[in-house]
Simulated assay, not measured.
Amino acid sequence: MRVLHVITGLGTGGAEQQLAALVRRLPAHGDIVCDVITLTNPGAVADRLRADGVRVGHLGMAGNRDLAALPRLTRAIRRGRYDVVHTHLYRAGVYGRIAARAAGVRAVVATEHSLGEERIEGRPLTAPTRGLYLATERLGHATVAVSAAVARRLRQWGVPAERLHVVPNGIEPTRYRCGPSARRGTRARLGIAPDAFVVAGVGRLVPGKRFDQLVRAVAAVPTAVLVLVGDGPERARLLRLAAGSGAARPVRFLGDRSAEEVPTLLAACDALVSPSREETFGLAVLEGLAAGLPVLHASCPALEELPADHAPGAARFDGGLPELTTALRALAAAGPVRLPQPRAVRHYDIGRAAESLTEIYRRTAARAAATAGGTR
């Protein structure tokens, strides 16, 4: 089975990292060959995919209204003679569904990675945005939500329940088992003292992630250092906030890092905090748990959809600064610990996601073939 993944960009965001991990695992669940086309920004994840032997194309799309990209994408799909086209992220979903149907591919799957109550992929959710999404969703056969929360929102929009599938994001748990030498080495490279209490924040530096609360909370905890992994438009404001917070210890802004680097960076930390009040899954929380860290989170559908005993190392807080500061002070006073990987991490193994998607591909392709009388 030949599958083409179409994604808006291949920078180091969560959806992009998920795609790379899935493409690595999908062939293990059947005779599946994956290619990838990015509409824009063939960044670090494109390099990672190529290193894994995946063919990556770049459409060179100039913007949301670059309609000339549509015939280029249609031709690429037709040339590849793909059995399934799988789109990721909003823009790729709109253009990819149209191009797939124009190219004669009837088995079209789309994953919705980041749909909140009022925002989609960090941008305000408007009536025209939702209208265009729903109009093109009808051209597909299956829509995948990364959590039950996202599936619920899509049903509220009017996406038919029979086309909706929940396939949670996943991680590769074994990659996060780093020993004491990784902790010492990473701290030495970052210039962090061995006895410092190190707090991690992982994600895009955008307002919705509320990393400003984390900067303020860490500044109020003696011996604490904050390590922020990610980049985005809030970087300059967070830098100014850190400089004026009165903290004697600087915040380490590490920028975007590859998926391969994140486990060793977390090995240097003592806790992970996810202060965002609205998440569609909560991948960073799972990464922290996989690394054996105590985790504080304001929102994490991945854990909220599991029994509480699946993640004993995670604690939810209300998102307020006083509660977060108190919780961090308690963790710092308790001293560094390394917890065993909880059941939640095993539940969200990337292999399970790949297996579920393989089954969706097969069913979707069979249904499309039956609808077309067995011909493309």
Rank of each mutant, 00 (worst) to 15 (best):
Gly292Asp: 04
Gly43Cys: 07
Ala142Gln: 09
Arg91Ser: 15
Gly255Lys: 06
Arg343Glu: 13
Leu339Ala: 05
Lys209Leu: 05
Leu59Val: 08
Glu118Gly: 00
Ala271Lys: 10
Pro173Ile: 07
Pro180Cys: 10
Glu261Asn: 03
Ala44Lys: 04
Gln156Tyr: 02
Val167Asn: 08
Val251Lys: 00
Ile77Ser: 04
Val166Phe: 08
Arg175Leu: 03
Glu305Pro: 07
Val251Asn: 06
Ala248Pro: 02
Pro250Tyr: 00
Val144Asp: 10
Thr325Asp: 03
Phe317Thr: 05
Leu70Tyr: 12
Arg210Lys: 13
Val144Asn: 04
Glu359Asp: 13
Pro322Trp: 00
Ala302Asp: 03
Leu226Lys: 10
Val105Arg: 10
Tyr361His: 10
His310Cys: 13
Val202Ala: 07
Arg25Ile: 03
Val295Tyr: 05
Ala327Cys: 11
Leu26Asp: 05
His86Val: 04
Val199Pro: 06
Leu272Arg: 02
Ser258Trp: 03
Thr129Pro: 01
Tyr82Ile: 10
Arg249Gln: 14
Gln156Met: 13
Ala259Asn: 00
Ala259Gly: 15
Gly116Pro: 04
Ile350Tyr: 01
Ala268His: 01
Ala28Pro: 03
Ala334Thr: 03
Thr136Cys: 14
Thr280Leu: 01
Gly122His: 08
Arg343Trp: 04
Gly11Glu: 15
Thr87Ala: 14
Ala366Ile: 00
Ser258Ile: 06
Arg329Gln: 15
Tyr82Arg: 10
Ser299Arg: 00
Leu303Glu: 00
Gly14Ser: 12
